[in-house]
Design a protein around this nucleic acid. Structure first.
Ligand SMILES: [Zn+2]
Length: 548
DNA sequence: CGTGTTTGACCAGCGC
DNA sequence: GCGCTGGTCAAACACG
């Protein structure tokens, strides 16, 4: 029911709706590899980018394309374009291989005069090159898609790594009751943390994930997966070394400093971290006449997994008969982002439709509920609420996993939140031991983000496992700090939010090189005055007579 | 007129 | 069972 109106609304060009205008500092996600494998994503580019940015964007893309083409075939002297490739691929498929070209050639031969031999040969070569190029291009696309997936997974690992690192350190601490572990087993991890800094600085480095993975691999039944209920809180030192005493409930946005809070009543296995991995279910959702939230799957599945609370079903998108625990877990995990913004909502590149607003308890500011409208039945929702203590802070809580290709502008946030959710749900959260370790001194926070005060906070109170990325604190790093300390830079515009600050913060939080995330808030933040003019939505088909 | 937002009603979970 | 709360629905409304 609900999915129906959502779907219709979206299918007819929802892409041009609510798209923010002319992001001043918008960086081409395509150039950063986010568009890989998402044909649809490219469609959003022209609309999303203002004329001023178009050149940059196109140039970047062209460079990429050229580079890719040059890597395989030195063919640009023929002036081959992608359109040509498409056509040629068609010929290739119809005619077959070289022989077909040959025969085609001979056919032409009958007509063309003999002094066109050179031209014919050139043509033949061209055809060959084109077909080859087409094939390689296809191959290249697959490779790009593969690389893009790898990137996402890599990011997920990066998100998790600091937690693992800290946890292992804590393990060592717990075992020895000592602080320093030079030479102790797993000592290499001690070196990992400093390297994180280097990695951030240089924007490279694959050493960390490898160490991280290998370290994890050596501990098959590490406590990382044995987390039941746990609670870790930074900032205030509790010193408790067990999870026997869960902390008092905290507001979702509670962040007593740059600490890290971990909590979860139930944890779920690591969901696959791929965008569009739920595509297979999209058809079900689109075709389903029931509301998208209604879970056809019974609770027994949750019980089978032993983690899902009986509340989860509410958030499960409508699916086919096949149970999709993975989607369920992603839907349940929450990632909230705290960012300073005078705008009512940060622009994350996605399209949202507000479907509700409530006065939350303990907060004078209302909480707004949005759902993703980029695709029919997309289960992703988000809540936007201002922090009670500091109304300049906007807390955006994301939930769910997009079941559709994302525009480049939305990729950073999506991948970041997905990575965070993945980390949260993967069982990589520290158990009770981890909690004791970090209690009191922002230990994990510093481990995670040695050069930044932006931290990943894992809420202890939420009924759902929630990671909070706090982007509100000025990073001590020079560049970031500068960006933060100064009043809104040019690209911040009327919203008064510093995109560069957010970029830096998110980059730190995500633990990835800056360029990947600069685009996230490079867009102008949500500005109510620039609401998308083109909004198309068909009326709901079945008006219910609930109200008089 | 078609669209997104508003806002009160509805629903489920939870604690008592 | 009752009240509270969070989350969602959908008619009514506002807007371009
Ligand atoms: Zn979506």
């Amino acid at each position: 029911m609900e999915s129906s109106y959502l779907g219709k609304r979206r299918m007819n060009g929802g892409a041009d709706r609510e798209t923010p205008r002319a992001p001043a500092a918008f960086l081409p996600a395509a150039a950063l590899g986010y568009e890989c494998g998402h044909a649809e994503a490219a469609h959003h580019l022209p609309r999303r980018v203002a004329a001023g940015e178009m050149d940059f964007f196109k140039k970047e893309k062209r460079e990429r394309k050229d580079a890719a083409a040059a890597a395989f075939v030195p063919s640009d002297e023929h002036g081959i374009k992608e359109d040509d490739l498409t056509i040629n691929m068609g010929l290739h498929h119809v005619g077959g291989k070289k022989s077909s070209i040959r025969s085609e050639e001979s056919t032409v031969d009958d007509v063309v005069s003999s002094d066109n031999v050179d031209h014919r040969e050139t043509k033949a070569e061209l055809a060959l090159a084109k077909s080859e190029l087409g094939r390689l291009n296809e191959e290249n696309k697959q490779l790009k898609d593969f690389v893009s997936r790898l990137t996402l997974k890599y990011n997920a690992f990066q998100m998790q790594m600091p937690v693992y690192t800290t946890l292992l350190q804590q393990q060592q601490r717990t075992n020895n009751h000592r602080a320093l572990l030079r030479g102790a087993p797993g000592h290499e991890l001690m070196n990992v943390v400093p390297e994180t800094k280097d990695q951030e600085g240089s924007g490279g480095g694959h050493l960390l994930p490898r160490q991280f993975i290998s370290s994890i691999g050596t501990a098959p039944d590490d406590p990382l997966h044995s987390m039941g209920s746990y609670a870790v809180r930074g900032g205030d030192s509790s010193g408790s070394t067990s999870n026997a005493e869960p902390p008092p409930p905290q507001p979702l946005d509670y962040c007593p400093g740059n600490g890290l809070m971990v909590s979860g009543k139930d944890l779920m296995p690591l969901p696959a971290f791929e965008h569009g991995h739920q595509q297979q279910h999209l058809a079900h959702e689109m075709g389903s006449s029931s509301r998208a939230d209604e879970p056809p799957q019974p609770h027994h599945l949750a019980a089978q997994q032993g983690w899902l609370s009986n509340k989860v079903h509410k958030f499960l998108p409508a699916k086919g008969p096949e149970p999709v625990p993975e989607a369920a877990t992603m839907r349940k995990a929450r990632v909230s982002v705290r960012a300073r913004s005078e705008a009512p909502m940060i622009n994350d590149g996605c399209q949202w439709r507000k479907y509700g607003q409530k006065m939350a308890k303990g907060n004078p500011c209302p909480r707004a509920y949005y759902r993703c409208t980029m695709a029919a039945g997309c289960p992703v929702r988000k809540q936007v609420q201002r922090c009670a203590e500091d109304t300049t802070v906007v807390i955006t809580t994301y939930e769910g996993h997009h079941n559709h290709p994302l525009p480049p502008a939305a990729m950073p946030m999506a991948s970041t939140t997905a990575a965070a959710a993945s980390m949260l749900l993967s069982g990589s959260m520290p158990s009770a031991d981890g909690g004791s370790l970090m209690a009191g001194s922002n230990f994990l926070a510093r481990a995670v983000l040695p050069c930044s005060s932006n931290v990943a906070t894992i809420s202890a109170s939420a009924p759902f496992p929630t990671v909070t990325l706090d982007l509100t604190q000025p990073p001590p790093g020079a560049a970031s700090a500068t960006a933060f300390a100064q009043p809104a830079p040019a690209q911040a515009r009327a919203t008064g939010t510093e995109p560069s600050q957010l970029q830096a913060a998110l980059a730190d939080a995500a633990g990835r090189p800056m360029p990947l995330t600069t685009q996230l808030f490079g867009q102008k933040l949500y500005d109510p005055s620039s609401k998308a003019p083109a909004r198309r939505r068909t009326r709901r088909a079945t008006p219910s007579a609930r109200r008089p």
